[in-house]
Nucleic acid binder design. Structure first.
Lengths: 225, 225
DNA sequence: TTATTGTGGTAGTAATACTATCATAAATAA
DNA sequence: TTATTTATGATAGTATTACTACCACAATAA
């Protein structure tokens, strides 16, 4: 049995749907690779076009600019991750076990999914770590938000917040704790690898320690006091 | 009595010391205003020059590029904040009270200091919230780190980490908890104001709630279990 | 058959991110 | 006092970036 996981993307994020053509899929695939290689700042549509073997104008027919492309990629990732989470926590009743699973999924490097061949989830995960916050840390956040560009991120956050409340109905900060877990899963990873003295994981550089830290943080927070 | 708080900056951050001349101070003052107004992405040295009434080349004599200027401003902020913290926690013996003061200083809008007239700390605080992470979320982090550009941030984190250990000597993640507090003090503020559904403070938009959340997070983490 | 749509290519423009050179006024050292 | 350094200003030039407009062609629908 081979299933195609289809993620319905916000149409305002692109000019032409990149999943609808070969060039479009190639843009997604190679942009993920190139952003990883060069970083968002030095990434340009011209370099991407050369990489793919097409022209700048070809890329511009799909995406208005690199900000939209970044927002597209991050939105895709959050949607994909929410599906992974709902898949891996399905049929689990205990919300605490659910939450543990989620923290593990957030903190552990993802394995590539054969289904969606044109996007490498593990490379995309790296982009989320290093560039993800740049999608919303702009002057246009509110305009972008009005167009629902961040809906997948907010949905994920809401899902986690609800599970937190299931664990501990009286806890006062479920949404803030949810966004803290998500952001810290990525920032601690970045710090561990590039600014290790900001973490306690510099020696081992092991993701399982990040997961342990987040578990400690979350479950102590949710303990009745 | 009038004291001038002098922050010794890493000399590799600038080509000519901006604190040593009128134009230099003007660059600092107006860059803080302009970055706040336009955001880092659309901020250019040309616009800054027009703002000040000088030429692009004039700015380039002080700073190599806008990345160095951003790193300079963030480093200045972290040094200033560490001084504020050491000042406001001086003579306090109880590490828990110290930590509470620190969380309050991190989460509360700063009042402008009359001493350093050319830098508005409150505007700089806003820059740290919206642009701060862009100083290190680049491909050059490690090179920048080798040149000690992030020393003030790491020092602050170490100070907070040590106080955490004083509170709870057995706690296993003092540095990660310290960087979590610092980052979340800013991210929760940004979310509260621009993506409120990611937080529990969207209704009141009050910084004191962020402080309460961080206190809850930290002191539950440090409780012996 | 013709018209439309989807797709790819060429060329050009304005802005950005610099670098280099020259002139001059003020501050400072000899 | 003169000589010299220093800070700033003005002008010009280049490579790259971030687009826009226009053209060509093949598949498909009317």
């Amino acid at each position: 049995m081979k299933l195609q996981l289809l993620i319905k993307m916000n149409e305002a994020l692109f000019l032409r749907n990149p999943e609808s053509s070969e060039l479009g899929k190639s843009i997604l695939k190679h942009s993920v690779q190139l952003i990883n290689k060069t970083g968002l700042e030095t990434f340009t549509f011209k370099k991407l076009a050369e990489d793919i073997g097409t022209t700048e104008a070809g890329i511009y027919r799909y995406f208005e600019n690199k900000h939209k492309l970044l927002v597209y990629l991050t939105a895709w990732y959050w949607s994909w991750l929410e599906f992974q989470i709902s898949f891996h926590t399905n049929n689990i009743n205990d919300p605490k076990i659910k939450l543990k699973r989620i923290i593990k999924l957030l903190g552990t490097p993802v394995e590539d999914d054969e289904q969606t061949s044109y996007i490498s989830e593990s490379l995309l995960h790296q982009i989320i770590i290093a560039e993800g916050s740049k999608a919303y840390l702009t002057k246009q956040v509110e305009e972008d938000n009005r167009q629902h560009f961040f809906k997948p991120y907010k949905d994920l956050c809401a899902v986690i917040g609800d599970i937190i409340l299931e664990c501990s109905p009286k806890y006062k900060y479920p949404k803030s704790l949810a966004s803290t877990i998500i952001e810290m899963a990525h920032f601690q990873n970045f710090f561990m690898n590039h600014l290790p003295s900001l973490t306690d994981f510099g020696r081992t550089k092991s993701e399982t320690e990040i997961v342990a830290f987040l578990n400690d943080l979350v479950f102590k927070s949710l303990k009745e006091s």
